[in-house]
Design a protein around this nucleic acid. Structure first.
Lengths: 355, 355
DNA sequence: TTGGGATTTGTGTCCGCACACAGTTAAATT
DNA sequence: AATTTAACTGTGTGCGGACACAAATCCCAA
């Protein structure tokens, strides 16, 4: 019965309208050069039927070698970006077969591998689209200006720059993620506990976005009116100052909770807690980095909030590819869920590939 | 520079091997009728290069109107299956444009709308593949037998039947999900607390799989050697007996935690807890059903474990479609992560579409 | 009325793969 | 040696859409 629901093709429309395929094509893509009569004939058919172009056929005859440049911070110094790189690799796997080439670039804070320099290099190859993790605001802005100028569409992920107009932004609501950390911290609260929010790493000074997490965290406690003392701390990532600072912290017996806003350093904190037998302190951090998982399994880290860096990269690239290749509409913002990782669900997250 | 990374096509292989495209095609699909010499020539090229067929071109000339039947329990009596239905709708949206038709069917426990009857109906249309939620074991087995006989590939989701050999299974590890509930329950434990595992609903008698959750829950406490008293309870879903049973339960002041294994009934439990001012009881349930979210927001439900029914259906259908249309390899089992939903991350889950 | 430019329309080709079918060659039979 | 049979190989076409280019039509001025 519902057997031969022959899909309507351009050919069919042409026949129905009594014009040639070329004319239908011109109307569909409003390329102009169509007489009002023909236009009317085609349009009257188009309103009657619901034409769905065959995506496969459309992109088959497409310009091969679409090129997407991906720019992220150098991954060798931070396993977080290592995860992102995995996501890029998966995207390459997925999209190469459609003739889409994905070229990754890596930047440092400054010098001749700064974001600006690297982006300039990337743009030389005249990519059809760009996917960018813009963690340094001012540099990012000049890159984005170039992109606008060259009319290259771009997707941002990880960090948003709302005032630019990206095709799409992929990331999380950082304030809400701070609030979530707050709730997780409070699950076994006691009245006179002291909680500390820690921002660790050299990027702190440039990364206003970390403050969002802190604000969210505090917001949670304001709302709930919990009588906690909350302080915050900025520490450089340099080995010595970091461990010294933590050791000092740990000596304070009132401190019962630490919330580390940067994903990489929470493992270091955990190791120091362990050495100083302060595993009574509830430690909350970000992301399923290898070291983090180790301490989560041991119970030193209580919770991790998963930002899903791998998937962020994958989805970002996919949005761009879908836009370029299939002309699909992509969401303006794609905010990932705030995933709570704890001992009893680590495995389920590790084993499930990209989710 | 890296400009024309021309993808290797059958044509190119033919040229490299010094044979015709037809021969390459015969080797690739081992259709036979190829001389050993030609075979060798082609194979030597194939080992050197990594041939990736263009999925688009392959499926372009494909049989249009692939048909996939989806069979799930009647959704009007259980919002869980309502969620699943949303997933089906999304899959239709996604795959219709590729010429794949998705036909849903709904079954009840028995009668002329039993799984067997409905499946018989579905099979009349000779679908190219089937996606099935087999919650009643014996009936499901006869359906699966038919599928094997008719050589129709099938994907199972929600409930696994490992001894059948589905193309793919999509779901969660229920034992681990029980363990997770255990950990969530224990976050603010006290020594002499009593915990209750509740199985609610008429399907309990047929659904051995609910026991997995209970076992996982108990397993967690065994391992941790927590001194909790854990009891379990099977209750019919009939209005009266349910509320009576819960009211009775609630009178016991030692009870500090309830773990409801069926997603739909936890809201009822929550409403009764609220009426009887026993919100001190930690309540854990499953899934982001509308009613459940209401009580989670109010704080009556502490945690929900998300089984992601919508996505389970979507992914199940997509696996089948990828298999039929693109000949893609699909994972033998696709176990979803065990997502923890709590007040401060509800929104992030609700707003992010299908993840 | 005709020429010439502008506008409109139709046809053909390519994209990469799958598969049917015709064509070629070699071996086997008479 | 002629002919059948089998084994192998190459060519051609279609899938649906995009786009280039050729062909057809129109309009207006000379």
């Amino acid at each position: 019965m519902s057997n031969s629901i022959k899909n309507i093709r351009i050919k069919d429309i042409a026949q129905m309208a009594g014009v040639s395929e070329g004319t239908v094509d011109r109307v569909l893509h409003n390329r102009g050069n169509v007489s009002l009569v023909a236009q009317a004939k085609v349009n009257s058919v188009l309103t009657k039927i619901h034409y769905k172009p065959n995506v496969l056929a459309r992109s088959l005859g497409k310009v091969r070698n679409l090129k997407i440049s991906v720019i992220i911070p150098e991954y060798r110094f931070d396993p977080y970006w290592g995860e992102v790189k995995f996501g890029i690799a998966q995207a390459q796997d997925e999209w190469n077969q459609y003739g889409v080439t994905i070229e990754p670039f890596y930047y440092l804070h400054d010098g001749n591998l700064s974001l600006e320099q690297v982006a300039k290099e990337a743009l030389k190859a005249r990519p059809n689209g760009m996917v960018l993790a813009p963690i340094f605001y001012p540099q990012a802005m000049t890159v984005i200006a170039s992109l606008h100028e060259m009319k290259i569409p771009y997707v941002l992920f990880n960090t948003n720059i709302p005032e630019s107009k990206p095709l799409s932004f992929i990331g999380q609501d950082l304030r809400k993620s701070g609030r979530l950390a707050g709730q997780l911290m409070g699950l076994d609260h006691k009245e006179n506990d002291e909680l500390v929010v820690m921002h660790i790493g050299e990027s702190v000074k440039d990364s206003i976005y970390l403050m969002e997490k802190e604000n969210g965290f505090k917001e949670f406690y304001n709302k709930e009116r919990h009588p906690f003392k909350i302080t915050s701390l900025n520490i450089d990532a340099s080995e010595k100052s970091l461990s010294e600072a933590i050791v000092r912290l740990v000596k304070n017996k009132n401190i019962k909770g630490l919330f580390v806003t940067t994903s990489k350093s929470v493992a270091t904190v955990a190791s120091i807690l362990l050495k100083n037998s302060r595993t009574d302190i509830r430690l909350i951090g970000y992301d399923m980095l290898k070291e983090n998982l180790k301490y989560l399994k041991k119970g030193v880290i209580s919770f991790l909030i998963n930002q899903n860096p791998k998937r962020q990269a994958f989805v970002g690239i996919s949005h761009m590819a879908n836009h370029l290749l299939f002309k699909k509409n992509v969401p303006h913002t794609d905010l990932f869920p705030l995933e709570v990782i704890m001992q009893e669900n680590i495995d389920s997250y590790v084993s499930s590939g990209i989710h």
